[in-house]
Design a protein around this nucleic acid. Sequence first.
RNA 1: GCCUCAUUAGCUCAGUCGGUUAGAGCGACGGACUGUUAAUCCGCAGGUCCCUGGUUCGAGUCCAGGAUGGGGCGCCA
Length: 506
Amino acid sequence: MKVEIKDLSTHVGQEVELHGWVQNKRESKTLTFVILRDGSGFCQCIFDLNVLGEEAFNEVSALGLESSLSVKGKVVADERQVGGFEIHATGFHVYQNCGEYPIAKKEHGVEFLMDHRHLWLRSKRQWAIMRVRNAVIFSIHNFFQKEGFVQMDAPIFTGNACEGTTELFETDFFGQPAYLTQSGQLYGEAMAMAMGKIYTFGPTFRAEKSKTRRHLAEFWMIEPEMAFFDIFDDMDLIEQFVRYVITDVMSRCKEELEILERDTTVLEKISNPFIRLTYDDAVAIIKGEKEVNGRKTIEVLEEDLRNTVQQIADLKADIESRETAINAGGMKKGQVNFNLNAIDKNKNTIKQLEEDERNIPQWIESAKNFTYGGDFGGSDETVLTRMFEVPVMVYDWPHEVKAFYLKRNPDNPKLARGVDLLAPEGYGEVVGGGERETNEQMLIEKINEHGLPMEAFEWYLDLRRFGSVPHAGFGLGLERMVAWICHLPHVRETIPFPRMYGRIEP
RNA sequence: GCCUCAUUAGCUCAGUCGGUUAGAGCGACGGACUGUUAAUCCGCAGGUCCCUGGUUCGAGUCCAGGAUGGGGCGCCA
């Protein structure tokens, strides 16, 4: 009977047939252990010389990693195994025995792995990440659907740079210049006026030459837009939404998060209320004028820097002692390998820590010198979120630094009702949104101020001419959300084939 | 666009003050051993030291320029 690995628990004691690839293999004289992966899971299959006979046994022993095959055998429960089951093979069919597989069972560099992304996706960590991504997408749809939102799609080709700020990819649309969308936001507003509550879910393109762990040139964004919502309704929804998605994904991806060695106690903090700060309060905290739990940002950062320096020293001492032990001789080869591996790992960690060591002083300077009125930089976000265990929402921004379509605070027209949700653990801005300007005249002023072509916004202004209502929305960066949930060092691992500055293949 | 770090075997990395024939581990391959989970043992193969130019009796090593990549800033989700 043909079954998938994920369903083995319902077939204990039965003869089944699995189809998959050799994820790993260990051989001995009479037994060969193959970790088979079929996309749904991993399962050890045991091939016994005495069961299969010499010819068949030699064939399976000779299989290279990622060879494809089907295996017939009996399902046996075994607690020691990943997934809890193993197969005692009675027969098999090889689809292809492949040669040396490029991705070895050891640490690889980023560039090598990115060049082999089409194969890297098969590895266990990537498998886990892609399943979390899938779960996040599923949860997002679940949340909005149960809340009565209608999913609608914004166009990907646009005729103009709609927000006028970022650089866009230009393309040819039947002889006219066109751009790949940087946001579905404006179209979302039009759709919300038709349906009440909508959300878009699609790819977004930014032509910025960003080289950071948070940026992609092509990424997926979820943009809900709600009629009759103000900034506070918006923040309530953001909080509810983010909490729902994370809680749901944690419960459905236990195995995946375990593979990723994600410390979920940090994620569980999501059940506590999120921090809400006005821009003014956030600036005071960043600059160290206001304490959080009796501590100032600069002190915390300086302590982080000292810890980093200490960690580097500790790791170097560890490397040195291992090297001394190896050079002293008398060590078994296996032990030597183990120590060499540990040294390699430590050296990699040191490289990362040394980058922190170079960056943290810059962040401290940037925090000290932050001038009121400016937008937050990546480092300011890191500094601010470093002070809290839960996501932080910052709202009421100086209107100059935010998009033209944001509504002004009626009590203080210098402030725009935008809100950013900053994730903990250095993941930065995961959500950006706010209440939209409803006043036609204010919008016209802003469009002129930004030097945008008025004729391209006539349709948008119509939304304020015909039944204008308070409304709000936000945009969630899918990849940043996945990176945060999985605790990944870079968003490039959260999308099957990342498109970023300097990377268009594979 | 700016700052910073890097580039040596298929992969991960050593390579001292500029010195003679460039090393290790992993992987691969051949063999021994083993209910194994990246920690057994022996053997074997494997190099355009990123590119160009310069300094020098001599450059993987020093200098200049370039390419590619990592990270940070700006920009943003």
